[in-house]
Design a protein around this nucleic acid. Sequence first.
DNA 1: ACATGTGAAAGCCTTCACAGCC
DNA 2: GGCTGTGAAGGCTTTCACATGT
Lengths: 218, 218
Amino acid sequence: MPENNSISKHLVGRLSFYRRMLERIRLDPAAGEFVFSHELAAMTGIGPALVRRDIMAIHFSGNPRRGYHVAELAEAIGAFLDPPSPQRVGLAGLGNLGRALVAFFAKPASRAPIVAAFDIDPSLVGRTFSGCLCHHADALARVVRAEGIRVGVLAVPPAAAQDAADGFIEAGIRGILNFAPVFIEAPESVYVHNIDMTMSLEQVVYFARDEAGNGDAP
Amino acid sequence: MPENNSISKHLVGRLSFYRRMLERIRLDPAAGEFVFSHELAAMTGIGPALVRRDIMAIHFSGNPRRGYHVAELAEAIGAFLDPPSPQRVGLAGLGNLGRALVAFFAKPASRAPIVAAFDIDPSLVGRTFSGCLCHHADALARVVRAEGIRVGVLAVPPAAAQDAADGFIEAGIRGILNFAPVFIEAPESVYVHNIDMTMSLEQVVYFARDEAGNGDAP
DNA sequence: ACATGTGAAAGCCTTCACAGCC
DNA sequence: GGCTGTGAAGGCTTTCACATGT
C-alpha cells in the first residue's frame, strides 16, 4: 500500500509539537498512561478534531474508553518523523544568533545535532562553541561533504545568505533552515524553510495595534 | 469608510517582506524607479498574481506600462502596516537567544525597538545589552507599564514562558512573540505568534529525507 | 455517557485566466 | 505587446457533526 497522502509541512510541524508534549507527559508523575485528544488540544492550542486527524494520518489508533497510549503514540510519531539515523546539521554564521542556535541544537543527543559551524571571522575560526568546531567558510562545501551533513542552517547576514546556501547546495545538502530575511534560491530537490524574525515581529506589532484575535498555534 | 476586509496574518507578513525588498531596490543605484509584480515575485519566491493581489489589498495602484512606483509603494505599505508611533517592545530572557534578539531589534531606529529586557539571573540584572537595560523579572509588569510597552518577546526556557507571558498580559500587553516551544495561554485580545525553532528544524529534517519539493516563501 | 474515527462541509488562500489599459 | 486588476476556479486545511465502539 503506497504511502502517498501528501504530507503537509503543517502536519509535520504539529506532529513534532505533539511529541514534545507527550514527552512532557511521560516525565510527569501525576499524569496517567493515556491522553485524550482534547487534552493534547488544550496543551497545544490545536483543535481536538485536528489532533485526531493528525494521529489518523500516521495510522495510529486510540481507544474510545481511555484515549491514546502516551508512550506508544510518541513512538509512532518518532517512527513517522525521524529518519533512520539522526541527520547531521551544519550551521553558517556564528554571530549572536548562530551561537544561540548551537547552544540549542549542538547536543549530540539531539535528533538533529549541529556537528559543524562556519564563519568568515578569523577570530572565531578554530574555536569551539557548545562543543561545535568553527571552520572557515571557505571550507564549507568540503567539510559538509566530509561530515555527511544533510541539513544546513543559515544564520548569516542577508548579503551572505545566498552564497552560504550555494555552498551547502553544491555539497549536496537536502534541506535548509534560513534565518536570513531574504528569499533563498534553491533547486526543487532542496527543501527550504524560512524563519524571518523581523517579519514575525512586524506581524505582532500590526495585530497588537487593534482588537485583533489570538494568533496561531505553531 | 470602514476598512474591513479581514487582514490575514499571511498578508501582513508578505507586506513586511515586500517592503524590505523595496528598500533594497531603493538603495540599488542600478535599479529603476519602478518594479513589476513579477520582479517582486522573483525576489520573494511569491507568485506574481499574489503580489498584485496583496498590493490591491492596501489600495495601491500600479501602472500597466511601468509597474509600481517603488518609493510610493513602500510608503503605502508603511502607512498600512505601521502604527502611528513605533510600538515599544519588551524582552523576557537574556540567554543566548535573548542577546541575539536585542542585537537585532534594540536599535531605536527600528519600527519596533526593544526598550527593556528582563531576566532572573542576578549576574545579568543591571547590565546593559546592545543599549538595553536588564531588569529583574520581578519588576516586569511594573516596568512594562512604566515604559508603555505594548509587545512582549519571550526568549525564556519553556518552563518559565507562561509565567513571563502572564506578567506581560497583566501589564496590559497587546501582542506576544513567543520563542519558547510551548503553547502560551492568553486572552483573545492578545495576539500571540509562535516561533518554534525545534519544530522548524524537525520539519526541515523530515523533508530533507526524501525527494520533497521546495519549501515555503516566508 | 463519552471518546474515537471520519465523510462532508466550510473557510481560507493561492493561482488561473482574461478584460482593460498604457 | 505586456502588464495591471480581478472574477472565478482550484486546492488545501480545518472544523463540523455523527456513526461507531466501549
